[in-house]
């Protein structure tokens, strides 16, 4: 457990010192959301209706940009090899690194989303639901993303490939994340019930990926160590 926290702390320290990565992801998030009304027209009613979808898709794309970082530098400078000789199993190494990605990228993106909601005329009443679903859903983004990051570590065209590999796996997260927020914004019938069921499934997806992600990522890392 100590090592687990030590590794998370180190990755967070590196993320803060390298700085650019988080800023780039947040800037990309802002830009994609700001481009949408330019493409769709300034109809506020339309924007309100599709705001949850825009925010979630933009968040996924922004997170995607930063996924490569999870293992890249440790693979390049040999740190992953050294970690393989530590008492901590590689599965936990992958879990710690994905958790650090969630804290350093997932949480800032989730917290920026309500601010961007203003641009899309999102109902203020939906803000708690928006933040809650994004905080609940972004672990899935980081932990499933870690699988893709590990698989494409040594691939040519790593970035584009990562998108192709990971985006289909994000579909459940996307669907339930959007439907939970939409349940609030669209005032669907039994509002709280519709929100709660989507929200709980979203949490289940996140929990499942917290288990599956490190297992698959560690398998991919071991294969590439060879």
């Amino acid at each position: 457990m100590n090592n687990f926290l030590t590794l998370i702390a180190r990755d967070l320290k590196l993320a803060v010192r390298e700085g650019g990565a988080i800023g780039t992801a947040l800037g990309f998030f802002l830009l994609v959301v700001a481009m949408m009304p330019l493409g769709l027209g300034p109809d506020l009613k339309l924007l309100t209706r599709i705001a949850p979808g825009i925010l979630w898709i933009a968040l996924l794309l922004a997170a995607l940009l930063s996924l490569g970082r999870i293992f890249e530098s440790d693979a390049d400078d040999g740190a992953l090899d050294v970690m393989a000789t530590s008492p901590m199993p590689l599965e936990l190494v992958a879990a710690a690194k994905a958790a650090a990605h969630w804290i350093s990228t997932g949480i800032p993106l989730a917290l920026l989303a309500p601010v961007l909601g203003i641009l899309l005329n999102l109902d203020i009443a939906a803000y708690p639901a928006l933040i809650a679903t994004m905080l609940a859903g972004t672990p899935a983004v980081s932990f499933i993303g870690a699988i893709g990051a590990a698989l494409t570590l040594k691939a040519r065209r790593g970035g584009l490939l990562l998108a192709l590999v990971v985006l289909p796996l994000y579909i459940p997260t996307l669907i339930f994340g959007i439907s939970a927020v939409s349940a609030v914004t669209l005032n669907m019938g039994a509002q709280s019930g519709a929100f709660l069921s989507s929200f709980l499934i979203l949490i289940a997806i996140s929990l499942a990926s917290v288990v599956l992600g490190p297992l698959a990522a560690a398998a991919a890392l071991r294969i590439q160590m060879q």
């Binding site: 400078d77 040999g78 008492p87």
Partner: peptide, 17 residues
């Protein structure tokens, strides 16, 4: 593996630390 130090070509040194 836990009894072993493996020093490879790369130094496992982080520039920002």
């Amino acid at each position: 593996a836990e009894a072993v130090h493996a020093i490879g070509h790369a130094n496992a040194v982080k520039a920002h630390l």
